[in-house]
Nucleic acid binder design. Structure first.
Lengths: 207, 207
DNA sequence: ACCTGAACACCGTTCAAGT
DNA sequence: ACCTGAACACCGTTCAAGT
């Protein structure tokens, strides 16, 4: 075969391409080796093992998430805009979330939004621990929401679900609030839930 | 070998025990078969495949989460108490979260808290779509937070992380808010973040 | 310093064959 | 209706051996 100069970077590039095009499950050491035209075992020399290969890919992908620029007139609006931008950035990279899912969450994933959030918390008049609390609460909120969204998408069939559980009360009597019953029976609009939650969270934190 | 009457329930029981004691990774068809004293292939007749085996286990575990009883004097306190109870229930069953992690999220996981939340939202004076929004927002908040917590726990070493990134500004100048810098440098107290976030969320939603 | 093939100890799933 | 063993097509990783 005699191919030349396999490098760590080449391994990472090819692995990244594999993940991008076929998802993280397609990233097997053997398939990667085939793609690279080397022996499986050569990869181990360059990246250690599959775990740290995924680590490196996650680090890489997070690194290119880029900076988030707040938009809006009021502090609350600007913080909400950061949350939305972070969610969008994460959702645009489903393989990143999938890799994180396999690998565990990196602190780094929170970073793109952190500087912006710190700045806006300060601008909103929060200081010290209270400002830090806002930063963490928003970060957890966004990342948590994205994880839930992703997990529901890969969920199995959802037969009984909330759907029929609330159209009628278990008593058989009509629900006391039919509009609420209808709203809970309908499929969840996760984007709307996100917006409501983030706005309420930020409003609550800035009180 | 000639063992008698393998039943779907016996398969599920043994699988559940395996997961409880050694985590979902230990649940391999071959190991399960060994534990049951049957041929690997017998399991397939009873449960189809590993996917639906996990499905069944998740459904089972969620079913025994039980009902959540709100506590507290004000509506806000009572809603927060539901959120805390749901988080605790989920955290007490780490294998459930791990299985969901492998399998995808079931609607059912949201259910234990739902009746209680509906009731409290109503008691707080919310009706129709606004009440539904509160229910969904709180459910997503809690489940999302638990997923984040679990993901961070299984995370790899976190070398640079937030830790050193905020003790000094990138400019080299001292941070404008040293107390904030310190708070961000310290390891995150996820329970505290949860409480702050849930309280703020509920306050924001009830405004 | 880098690459190789062979081997080890696993997986989930299918299928024809048994009772 | 239920169970079996054999076989297929995979995995990640280790290791002694090569250059």
């Amino acid at each position: 075969m005699a191919r030349s100069a396999l490098s760590r970077d080449e391994v990472l590039d090819t692995a990244a391409a594999l993940v991008r095009e076929h998802g993280p499950d397609a990233l097997t050491m053997r398939r990667l080796a085939a793609e690279l035209g080397t022996a499986v075992t050569s990869i181990y020399w360059h990246v250690g093992n599959r775990e740290s290969l995924l680590d490196a890919l996650v680090a890489r992908t997070v690194a290119d998430l880029g900076t988030i620029r707040p938009r809006g007139a009021t502090p609350a609006e600007r913080i909400v805009s950061v949350a939305r931008a972070l969610r969008r950035a994460l959702r645009e990279r489903p393989h990143l979330v999938a890799m994180v899912h396999e690998r565990g969450l990196t602190e780094r994933m929170f970073l793109p939004a952190q500087r912006a959030l710190v700045h806006e918390a300060h601008a909103a008049g929060l200081r010290g621990a209270r400002a830090a609390a806002l930063v963490h609460a928003v970060q957890f909120q966004v990342v948590g929401h994205v994880l839930v969204e992703r997990n529901r998408e890969r969920a199995p069939a959802q037969p009984p679900a909330e759907t029929d559980l609330w159209v009628t009360e278990p008593t058989g009597l009509p629900a006391p609030d039919p509009e609420l019953a209808r709203a809970l029976a309908a499929p969840v609009d996760t984007e709307a839930v996100f917006l409501v939650a983030v706005r309420a969270l930020v409003a609550g934190l800035l009180r």
